[in-house]
Nucleic acid binder design. Structure first.
Length: 339
DNA sequence: CCCTGTCA
DNA sequence: TGACAGGGG
């Protein structure tokens, strides 16, 4: 999932408050997947309403957005459109992995292996159409704008930051850097703890920002070469070279100058290489969006979350209160009308 | 993930 | 007040 180039990138720790007054274009798919895989009970079961609908993502959205609002951050969600044809292999691979994880989850449960069970439960998470639909519904009631990308959400987010409509692209993946996002923020959470994948160990995680130009300069490469490194390591559109991680990829690209030369030297090939490079450089994006934050519709949120999905009214009202207060406070302080 | 209650 | 356990839906 995503491109693994984090090890060669310079990151800057940012406090949650450093992002005050900033517009953050959130990768919807990435965030929802994160919520689905992490918001679970000890045994691995996701949160569900009485009709057996998964609700982990709704919980994640409600509380995380309340926290962002309180920090003065303006979120906008960006959702994926039609993936490029050359993503088909990755998509079917993910489907296969999910199916395998589902069986292994059941097996581990039967054997009483709780840690294994949890791991496979997470891996079986799927962001399906219903998850996306009711996320958009909740976000709309909360007054948070959503953008429908023509293709990859990370590409659309990158475009919006370049255009100046947003300040950061937010995702756990580094892909939007490949699409040219000047600034990416990761770990957009308040709780400074995260579970290590697989193990039952928690580590501290702080939000961090990555500056594209700074990294390009530091690595002494250009953007095409960064894309070349990504293609060496493997992206959603290609498998990557055998036993080549980010550090080796950097060395290879610097040594040979371009991905084409690296492949030529190794006698290997990547299908539709030029089309893929061009997709990173000139992805389909749209200007058809409006960024407008509206005051939360309390009754609709309560109806949706409490009546339809069995959330506690006390908790939801408290969260909506936080949304309203934060918005009003900002509007007074900065003249920059939120609502 | 995030919230809430408890305990020192 | 901050760490921790437990539950959320």
């Amino acid at each position: 999932m995503g491109v693994d180039i984090g090890d060669i990138l310079e990151k800057r720790q940012v406090g949650f408050d450093d992002l005050a007054h900033r517009i953050v274009a959130i990768d919807g798919y990435n965030t929802l997947y994160q919520f689905l895989s992490i918001i679970r009970q000890r045994d691995g079961t996701p949160l569900k309403d009485s009709k057996d609908n998964i609700t982990s993502h709704l919980s994640g959205i409600l509380y995380r957005m309340a926290n962002l609002f309180e920090a003065g951050i303006k979120p906008v969600f960006v959702f994926d459109g039609k993936p490029p044809d050359f993503k088909a292999d990755t998509i079917s691979q993910r489907k296969k992995s999910r199916a395998e994880a589902r069986t292994k989850w059941d097996e581990a449960k039967e054997k009483g292996l709780s840690e294994e069970a949890y791991k496979y439960a997470q891996a079986s998470s799927k962001v399906d159409a219903r998850i996306v639909e009711d996320s958009m519904q909740l976000l709309d009631f909360m007054g948070i704008p959503c953008v429908q990308a023509p293709s990859e959400g990370e590409a659309q987010a990158a475009y919006m930051v370049n255009k100046g409509d947003a300040d950061y692209s937010a995702s756990q993946d580094y892909d939007s850097l490949l699409f040219g996002a000047p600034r990416v923020v990761r770990n957009l959470t308040i709780t400074g703890k995260r579970k290590l994948p697989g193990k039952n160990v928690y580590i501290d995680v702080e939000p961090e920002s990555i500056d594209l130009m700074q990294n390009i300069k530091l690595l002494d490469i250009d953007r095409q070469q960064l894309i070349g490194i990504a293609l060496c390591v493997g992206t959603d559109y290609n498998k990557g070279l055998e036993k080549v991680g980010p550090k080796t990829a950097l060395k290879l690209i610097k040594q040979h100058g371009s991905i084409h030369k690296v492949l030529e030297h190794r006698g290997e090939a990547i299908d539709e290489l030029d089309a893929k490079i061009d997709f990173f450089l000139n992805p389909p994006v749209t200007d058809a969006y409006e960024l407008k934050w509206k005051s939360p519709q309390k009754e609709k949120i309560v109806d949706f979350l409490c009546k339809q999905h069995d959330f506690s009214e006390e908790r939801v009202l408290k969260a909506v209160d936080r949304l309203e207060k934060a918005g009003k406070q900002r509007s007074q302080q900065t003249l920059d009308q939120w609502f």
